[in-house]
Amino acid sequence: GVDLATVREHRAYLVRITTRQALGRLRTLGRRKESYVGSWLPEPLLTTPDVAEDVELADSVSTAMLLVLETLTPTERAVFVLREVFDLGYDEIAASVDKSPDAVRQIAHRARAHVAARRPRGTVSPAETRDALDAFRRAVETGDLQTLVDILAPDVVLLGDGGGVKQAVLRPIVGADKVSRLLVGGMRKTGAISLRPAQINAGPALIIHLDGELDTVVTAHVENGRITGLYAVRNPEKLSHMARETALRR
């Protein structure tokens, strides 16, 4: 509704209104999470393969990193993303979040320390994650319990998000034996199922179809060739961006 001819700095204006829209969205989601059924996971995005070429961007939208960012306050998250991902100056960020530049510097420092303490350790190539997921898929499809246990880290964590609409684990499942038995047992109880590799949130993942219908999106975190985290989204409201690829760029 704004005549852009009256805006002196289009880029700064767009950064400001986008940031404020995002802050409003984050605060709304925060209130919804208070009554959310089970674990809350980020909405998966079917992304284009070229996103992985920008390592920093790919890391910033990975499921593991988004879960870390969820532990920040909305303002901390906005400052962190604008500074660390888009490399904006403190003055420009300050105008977007209605803070002084000095306050933004302090928020950025606090957010960086918070993320550094919680972000996944080590850099894992997409190929390593893809190989682990391929082995995981074959083991689940064949019901090979021992191979599945070997692929999973001893302290692997499985999180499921059904949103109270679809059946999912309500609490994190921890441990290779528990997770593998749950997965193999679940496969035996379902109908015609297929697991298809895909690029989700700029990383390798699996899309599960049940009786020909989209059912679950599974992303994973891998360390030292083993899966340490599995994130399964089943909530239909969060699978709306799976029909077509989303292009991401800075």
Rank of each mutant, 00 (worst) to 15 (best):
residue 172 P to S: 08
residue 240 S to P: 00
residue 168 A to V: 02
residue 189 K to F: 01
residue 202 A to P: 06
residue 174 V to N: 07
residue 209 H to D: 15
residue 212 G to L: 03
residue 210 L to W: 01
residue 206 L to A: 06
residue 193 I to W: 00
residue 214 L to G: 01
residue 186 G to V: 05
residue 234 R to I: 01
residue 178 K to Q: 07
residue 217 V to N: 03
residue 193 I to H: 02
residue 244 R to H: 11
residue 195 L to W: 13
residue 219 T to W: 09
residue 225 G to N: 08
residue 233 V to Y: 07
residue 205 A to Q: 08
residue 169 V to H: 05
residue 206 L to V: 07
residue 169 V to M: 02
residue 203 G to T: 03
residue 206 L to I: 11
residue 211 D to H: 04
residue 199 Q to F: 05
residue 199 Q to D: 14
residue 196 R to M: 15
residue 188 R to M: 10
residue 184 V to L: 05
residue 192 A to P: 01
residue 203 G to I: 02
residue 173 I to M: 14
residue 189 K to I: 03
residue 190 T to W: 00
residue 219 T to P: 11
residue 190 T to V: 14
residue 238 K to F: 02
residue 189 K to G: 01
residue 244 R to N: 04
residue 235 N to Q: 06
residue 215 D to T: 12
residue 244 R to Y: 04
residue 243 A to L: 12
residue 221 H to P: 06
residue 237 E to D: 13
residue 207 I to R: 05
residue 169 V to N: 11
residue 244 R to C: 02
residue 173 I to S: 03
residue 209 H to G: 01
residue 205 A to K: 07
residue 182 L to H: 13
residue 195 L to N: 05
residue 173 I to E: 09
residue 183 L to V: 13
residue 200 I to P: 02
residue 209 H to V: 08
residue 190 T to R: 11
residue 168 A to Y: 03
residue 215 D to R: 12
residue 233 V to Q: 05
residue 206 L to S: 08
residue 169 V to E: 06
residue 230 L to K: 00
residue 207 I to D: 02
residue 225 G to P: 06
residue 174 V to M: 06
residue 216 T to R: 10
residue 217 V to P: 04
residue 231 Y to G: 04
residue 206 L to P: 04
residue 228 T to L: 13
residue 218 V to T: 09
residue 185 G to Q: 12
residue 197 P to D: 01
residue 206 L to M: 06
residue 229 G to H: 12
residue 184 V to I: 15
residue 241 H to F: 13
residue 224 N to P: 01
residue 233 V to P: 05
residue 181 R to G: 06
residue 231 Y to E: 05
residue 206 L to W: 06
residue 243 A to Y: 07
residue 197 P to E: 05
residue 205 A to S: 10
residue 194 S to E: 15
residue 233 V to K: 04
residue 183 L to M: 13
residue 189 K to Q: 13
residue 201 N to C: 11
residue 239 L to I: 03
residue 195 L to V: 02
residue 243 A to I: 09
residue 196 R to E: 15
residue 232 A to T: 02
residue 224 N to L: 13
residue 185 G to C: 11
residue 191 G to E: 06
residue 237 E to T: 10
residue 186 G to Q: 06
residue 221 H to R: 15
residue 241 H to R: 14
residue 200 I to C: 03
residue 204 P to L: 10
residue 188 R to S: 08
residue 187 M to W: 06
residue 185 G to A: 12
residue 230 L to C: 07
residue 206 L to N: 02
residue 229 G to L: 15
residue 213 E to A: 12
residue 205 A to P: 02
residue 211 D to R: 08
residue 241 H to A: 14
residue 181 R to F: 08
residue 223 E to V: 15
residue 223 E to Y: 14
residue 202 A to N: 09
residue 208 I to C: 10
residue 177 D to R: 12
residue 228 T to D: 14
residue 179 V to Q: 03
residue 211 D to W: 04
residue 169 V to K: 04
residue 234 R to S: 08
residue 216 T to H: 09
residue 223 E to K: 15
residue 241 H to Y: 11
residue 218 V to L: 15
residue 201 N to A: 13
residue 243 A to S: 12
residue 199 Q to C: 12
residue 203 G to Y: 02
residue 229 G to P: 05
residue 194 S to F: 00
residue 229 G to Q: 10
residue 210 L to M: 11
residue 203 G to Q: 14
residue 202 A to Q: 06
residue 234 R to Q: 11
residue 176 A to T: 01
